[in-house]
Design a protein around this nucleic acid. Sequence first.
DNA 1: GTGTTGGTTAAGTGTCCGCTTGAGTATCGC
DNA 2: GCGATACTCAAGCGGACACTTAACCAACAC
Lengths: 123, 123
Amino acid sequence: MLNPQRVDAVFHALGDPTRRAMLARLSRGPISVTELAEPFPMSLAAVVQHLQVLEESGVVRTEKVGRVRTCSIAPEGLRLAEQWLNERRTLWERRLDRLGALLAEEEDEEDEPTPSRKRKKSR
Amino acid sequence: MLNPQRVDAVFHALGDPTRRAMLARLSRGPISVTELAEPFPMSLAAVVQHLQVLEESGVVRTEKVGRVRTCSIAPEGLRLAEQWLNERRTLWERRLDRLGALLAEEEDEEDEPTPSRKRKKSR
DNA sequence: GTGTTGGTTAAGTGTCCGCTTGAGTATCGC
DNA sequence: GCGATACTCAAGCGGACACTTAACCAACAC
């Protein structure tokens, strides 16, 4: 879970605006390939190619019954990307917090150059 | 906040593995361009080009002092992508929940074919 | 059977994009 | 001043990728 290859595939899939639009559509419910293709100004074949990318990256699941293939969101795939982003962002923000605390501490020292440190150290 | 153009730019920036690796490095703290470039098997110019994409998309901020440009994460940019993903995913998952509830209700009806419907209808 | 719908597959094309090279500029150390 | 460092800019190349067309196949309607 959160292995680099899968992350690569997911973000590559999310990189294309058409594919993101498809995801947006699918998030409102499962739908057939033809229905999914309908709002896009491109051939059905092109849509199918995008769909393959989405499915191979694990953000979309499809199932064929009879001659119609029904597509739906695979939430784990999206969650993978969310997690990656969240980890990087929170790592950064925690760093910022520590830095802020440190700076505040140094300012205190300037205000109070005597070696008598009364208040407790945060963190 | 969450305007389509910005979302496009952010996801395009995130689409490249080299740029994601740069973000990962930056999430551990600000760093100069040369330091940022060091782990990558490519020219400095290439790294700078990636950096421009990251900055224009709003996931990275840079500031030049003297001759050295220092790069750091811009958490709002990352948060934008996180939000987009989260909205789509939760929309889908809520839909799934409603569907599950509906199916459970229908099964109840089969168990109890009499027209006496006591429990209140959900949604 | 015929026709239609829904999708699949393959081959080809244009374009964007990642990268390189090379030449240039500004700042620092001395 | 001089040389080194830290980028910056522009032009060009090659490959990936989004898209097209066209032929094909399978399931349904009749």
